[in-house]
Design a protein around this nucleic acid. Structure first.
Lengths: 229, 229
DNA sequence: ATATTTTTATGCGACTTCGCAAATAATTCT
DNA sequence: AGAATTATTTGCGAAGTCGCATAAAAATAT
């Protein structure tokens, strides 16, 4: 349950991590053989960008290899097959987003209004969907995983886990808010969670279709104003 | 504007159409050369199913050829390249859905409540997303077009047109409803349209992730009850 | 120093995917 | 009947995609 894929690649969980600039030297660790010539994090980062633009099926291992300078066999040794690379890149993406949300999605009963909190949540998501690109790309995971879910078991499982995690997070958030008296009686945590889920999906879809930051924030503001009058 | 692709294939707009069972004989028409041995509608139907399951990038012309029994050159002659087949299959899909909605999405001021109308709308969408499959597949267009939009101009344009059409439809529907006094003063047609858009996206996403008809209708009922109390 | 371990580099082989061209078949026009 | 038109069939060729196998390189262990 907690570990959907007991794969053979768990060992590189404790591989040397270079969080600095994209250096080529391995940072530390006293592993036995020849050290990695590339940073796995940097590879996953550029793999993410490729998947984000082209989707899973249309990005080849050759694409990733060319964009990173890492040969295909090295990619296979470090991550596994394409599906494994995709999963790891998306987990990284989600983790980054999650950590941004941690600072925002808390309700301790004082301070901001519910509406201000949700507004900040949407600001973060819109920034992620919009990026610095000339053309916004929407959500890297949703816009690509929905496409692959029926054909790729691991992606389907990650999709389900993502939805469940989203629901859990918002539901407990709203339950906390209700506990602290920040919610009206007619505002059910379950229903509100579905509302936020829907509005988020709406934004991510429109971003992928080309909607810019201003258009999206306008939509977000108007809808949250409706939800939390 | 009205014709995004002035392609060479417009002539088959008036090609013989067989709306009957999947026969092999051309139905009518007095065109010059050898008649088609297959029904273009039937081909687009099975192409749709393939795209629906596997997405655009992962379904090859060989897949479509094998599933329909029509050779690749014949497909190319009849429809164009893969992108053109996809567009035509999805237009057919949308047209079918649109016609179902026509009977439901009208507000003449009497009869049903707003909530009942929206409930019927969601019933239709949920049925489309759920189908008779063992595993629900979500929206054939959204779940696949979002993936391809950044890389395929024609798909991006269709995505934008779909969103605009959705917005226009619901906005004028809600404006009509307001005119007939079916809407409270705080229910803005624009905001309601975004809400419905979001809830629809939410359902289509969860369907693709495996949510069944009951789960989806429960969500739909709870959210529309919130929107139209 | 030598052996062991791990990564890297190179390349082959099988398969897929797609566009295209040439020959054949079926139908209408004159 | 013969010409013209359109579809179908068959097959080739180029490019892409991926897994794998082999040899070389770079580090540690003994």
């Amino acid at each position: 349950m907690d570990d959907p894929k007991p794969t053979e690649l768990m060992f590189d969980m404790d591989a040397p991590v270079c969080h600095g600039l994209g250096d080529t030297q391995a940072c530390s660790g006293k592993k036995r053989g020849r050290p990695r010539a590339f940073c796995t994090e940097a590879v996953l980062e550029t793999a993410l960008e490729l998947f984000w633009m082209k989707g899973f099926a249309a990005t080849s291992l050759d694409d990733i290899s060319a964009a990173t300078g890492v040969s295909r066999p090295s990619l296979a040794a470090a991550f596994g097959d394409k599906e494994a690379i995709y999963i790891k890149a998306m987990e990284r993406y989600q983790e980054d987003l999650r950590s941004q949300l941690d600072g925002v999605l808390t309700c301790n009963g004082e301070g901001d209004s519910m509406r201000a909190i949700i507004d900040r949540y949407f600001d973060i998501m819109i920034a992620a969907y919009t990026g610095e690109q000339d053309h916004p790309l929407g959500c890297a995971f949703m816009c690509t995983a929905l496409n692959e879910a029926p054909q790729h078991e691991s992606i389907l499982e990650m999709l389900q886990a993502t939805i469940e995690g989203f629901d859990r997070r918002f539901q407990s958030f709203f339950e906390g808010a209700r506990y602290f008296g920040c919610l009206r009686g007619d505002q059910d945590p379950k229903v509100l969670t579905q509302m936020i889920s829907g509005l988020t999906s709406n934004l991510l879809m429109r971003a992928r279709a080309g909607a810019g930051r201003k258009e999206l924030t306008d939509i977000a503001r108007a809808t949250t104003a409706f939800l939390f009058p």
